[in-house]
């Protein structure tokens, strides 16, 4: 380890984040080098004092007294996670759970929102270079919940991933993923399932490859939605229902 490397490792050493071999190399260098020894001790003094000052300033801070009241009031208006939305039940049979959930009276998916986003045709914030991982990384970095992108069989369904951006659906951040199918735009929206949820009125149910899909039309655009785990997916496009159903059914399970 030379002097410049020792300087860079001084923070790791002070934070207790070095590997044992790195710490040994660092200690050996600092013991042998008077200049680095002085520098490290000065840095150690500075860092300890600074941390103390920062923590003092943090300790003096108090949130407004009504913040806790506002938070607990807000939470009390929310419904708790539903008992059937547990990993065990999801594993036991998504289709059955989805069917049960659909039948509950509750908030209806408004197809206007995804259709409006599709018609606005905003550019992607991240473009795919043939790699779904890049789009996944963008979404996981910007969404507060995990969204698993469906992996469509691109060869069979002839779709190409174009990119993604963030959108707002049902007052929540949603993933908006863009595909191209032989020149036609297809938009996929994914967002967390609301506590109470029902498919749009007038939508019909279709089974495809063991998946329960809700199929309908809004403002002339074809819409296919389905539930997977705690995520709602919605495909919107000008392409016909059969092609959208085929696409939804082509994804890996």
């Amino acid at each position: 380890m030379d002097c410049r490397e020792a300087e860079r490792f001084s923070d790791l050493s002070l934070d207790g984040e070095t590997e044992p071999s790195e710490q040994a190399a660092f200690d050996a260098h600092v013991t042998a080098c008077g200049r680095c020894s002085g520098r490290f001790h000065a840095q150690s003094w500075y860092q300890n004092n600074l941390r103390q000052k920062l923590q003092e300033s943090s300790d003096r801070l108090e949130p407004p007294s009504n913040l806790k009241v506002r938070i607990t009031a807000q939470i009390s208006e929310e419904r708790s996670p539903l008992p059937w939305a547990t990993p065990a039940l999801v594993a036991a049979g998504l289709a059955a759970v989805a069917g049960f959930t659909w039948s509950q009276a509750g908030a209806t998916l408004d197809p206007e929102e995804p259709v409006a986003r599709h018609t606005h045709n905003l550019p992607p914030e991240v473009r795919s270079r043939g790699d779904v991982m890049e789009v996944s990384r963008f979404l996981s970095a910007h969404l507060e919940y995990p969204v698993e992108l469906p992996r469509f069989d691109e060869e069979r369904s002839n779709v190409r991933l174009v990119g993604a951006r963030l959108a707002s659906i049902a007052n929540r951040d949603a993933a908006y993923v863009m595909y191209d199918q032989r020149g036609a735009r297809i938009s996929l929206f994914a967002y967390p399932k609301p506590r109470r949820f029902a498919p749009p009125p007038g939508f019909g149910e279709r089974e495809a490859h063991g998946r329960t899909l809700q199929v309908g039309t809004h403002r002339g655009y074809n819409v296919v939605t389905w539930l997977s785990g705690n995520t709602v997916y919605a495909l919107v496009s000008e392409v016909d229902h059969d092609r959208l159903v085929e696409l939804a059914a082509s994804q890996d399970r």
Binding site: I71, S80, P81, P146
Partner: peptide
């Protein structure tokens, strides 16, 4: 407060954080 540098924005951020945390508490 250190991130937003604004007491009002900090309150909103904390409130949003708790609401989202509750919604995803099952995770």
């Amino acid at each position: 407060l250190r991130l937003t540098r604004s007491p009002k924005d900090a309150e909103d951020l904390v409130q949003d954080t708790y609401l989202k945390a509750f919604r995803f508490f099952e995770s």
